[in-house]
Design a protein around this nucleic acid. Structure first.
Length: 484
DNA sequence: TTTTGAGTTGTTCGA
DNA sequence: GTCGAACAACTCAAA
């Protein structure tokens, strides 16, 4: 019986797993995960995701044990480790799902060549996307840079395949290779700062399945409105599961797709379509990253390369205030604290804090991208890059330069009754709604009654938004008058 | 090749 | 309080 190694990467699940299904049908299966952060280029897995990964690997190992098999864990470079594993268990084939980050693509190419040289068959599958990034192209054969035509093109493609169920059984190899212990990978931080994340999330395939089921049963029906309300669970909250592949993209797509059928009133249908559109944005992010591999570190729109960002010797203390949720703008601070505490931030608030960093503080979007990379449990190079370049005005379909979020108005509009701010900035709990999003404008008596002294209990605003806006428009006009 | 229509997520100002 | 217009110019994608 031939033996196949399934190299798990960002696909920590058993269902909707083409590589695993292929291996299971072929014969004996050796599931393996290799921890090799040095092969991720400029973007090694950040702290929050290491925590998540530790949990998720534990869950995957457990699920595999339930099937009567096991998960081999190793630390080391991928090619050498795979060759060792293949030798130890007499595997003749290694399979995996493709990744699309520039460093991963280079590494995988190297691995494929190296395995071929060693006489081992290597085979990659699409387990991460609805469509391969190269499948969609403009009529001129070029990559898309605008979402709407990309999305239209996507709709002309056949519906993605339905997800396959998890294999019912996996055959063991004649001989198992040695495995490291999960703790040996040293993914867990030495200081225990992850309590809030552990409260907020259940990593793993089961946790993801539950989240998906919950979302398509109810919140998806009000998705278009409620996804903008940070104080309720109106979004799917699937991003960390999709990133780690604990929920397969086809599973998410088809679960939501079912909700677009049959509904005569059309409300549910429209809302479910709205969610599918967001999944298309995820695809678009991968499309862009694949075709423009420099974008994690470089603006897509070249003329932004010389943008006059603030000198970080001067900007350092502003960046720190932003990171710590001490800008004096409640909606910004609430978001940054939610991020620090739970490893996640509501999408609407991500836009607000990003606009604030980039436009109000004139801090390079890459500083924000780095911070998100380290603190988000869903940090994903394609999506993080797309989001920050959008906020920075230098990416695909970027916001027009004059679109500068007013953090007070955004707070008043999307956190009307202040539930979100009060949850994350409890020192402002007693401030009346009217002043909650602009405590500096509250009459002294109102602040006193709320038990708040600005500058002591809660910061004064670190910049005046009106002035900051003018400054940003000035800086942006320098770029907009420049030739590409 | 040239032309044409259009482009995720806002804010401010003045009527 | 509500509403529409202005905020620029550019680039993309398709015809």
């Amino acid at each position: 019986m031939p033996t196949t190694i399934v190299w798990f990467r960002q696909d920590l699940r058993l269902a909707d797993h083409p590589a695993l299904s292929f291996a299971a049908e072929r014969g004996a299966v050796v599931p393996a995960f290799i921890w090799s952060p040095e092969e991720e280029g400029d973007w090694p897995v950040g702290a929050a995701r290491r925590w998540w990964l530790h949990q998720s690997l534990g869950k995957l190992a457990h699920s595999l044990e339930q099937l009567g098999t096991r998960l081999i864990l190793r630390r080391g470079n991928a090619l050498d480790t795979l060759k060792q594993l293949a030798k130890a268990c007499h595997a003749d084939t290694i399979v995996w799902h493709r990744r699309y980050e520039p460093a991963a693509i280079e590494r995988d190419k190297r691995v494929k060549r190296g395995l071929a040289d060693a006489g081992i068959d290597a085979r990659s599958f699409n387990g991460h996307l609805l469509f391969e990034p190269w499948e969609l192209q403009t009529q001129q054969g070029r990559p898309y840079q605008v979402f709407t035509p990309y999305y239209k093109a996507m709709q002309h493609f056949p519906e993605p395949d339905a997800p396959e169920p998890a294999p019912e059984r996996l055959d063991a190899p004649m001989k198992w290779p040695r495995s490291d212990a999960l703790d040996d990978l040293q993914l867990m931080p030495t200081i225990k700062w992850y309590g809030g994340m552990a409260e907020a999330w259940v990593p793993g395939e089961q946790g993801g399945a539950k989240q998906l089921k919950r979302f398509v049963e109810d919140p998806i029906g009000d998705y278009l409105d409620e996804r903008n309300n940070p104080s309720v669970v109106g979004t799917s909250r699937l991003s960390p599961y999709l990133h780690h592949g604990e929920v397969g993209i086809r599973q998410a797509w088809h679960a939501a797709r079912k909700r677009t059928a049959g509904n005569a009133g059309g409300t549910l249908k429209n809302n479910a379509l709205g969610y599918l559109r967001e999944l298309a944005w995820r695809e678009f992010g991968y499309h862009l990253l694949y075709h423009f591999p420099r974008t994690p570190n470089h603006p897509l729109r070249e003329k932004y390369a010389g943008f006059p960002w603030i000198d970080m010797r001067q900007g350092r203390h502003w960046l720190e205030a932003w990171q710590q949720g001490k800008t004096g703008y409640p909606i910004v601070d609430a978001g940054m604290r939610e991020l620090w505490h739970t490893g996640w931030m509501h999408n609407r608030v991500r836009m607000i804090v990003a606009s604030f960093l980039v436009k109000d503080l004139l801090i390079d979007w890459r500083e924000g991208a780095r911070w998100f990379w380290d603190t988000l449990v869903d940090a994903d190079l394609a999506n993080n890059t797309l989001g920050w370049q959008w906020a920075g005005g230098c990416g695909a379909d970027a916001a027009p330069y004059f679109r500068i979020f007013n953090p007070t108005l955004q707070g008043e509009k999307f956190d009307k009754h202040g539930e979100y701010v009060r949850r994350w900035c409890p020192e402002l709990k007693e401030v009346p709604d009217k002043y909650l999003h602009k405590p500096w404008a509250a009459p002294p008596l109102a602040l006193k009654q709320a038990g708040v002294t600005l500058g002591e209990d809660y910061p004064e605003p670190i910049v005046d938004h009106k002035e900051a806006r003018e400054r940003a428009l000035d800086a942006l006009s320098q770029v907009s008058s420049k030739d590409d």
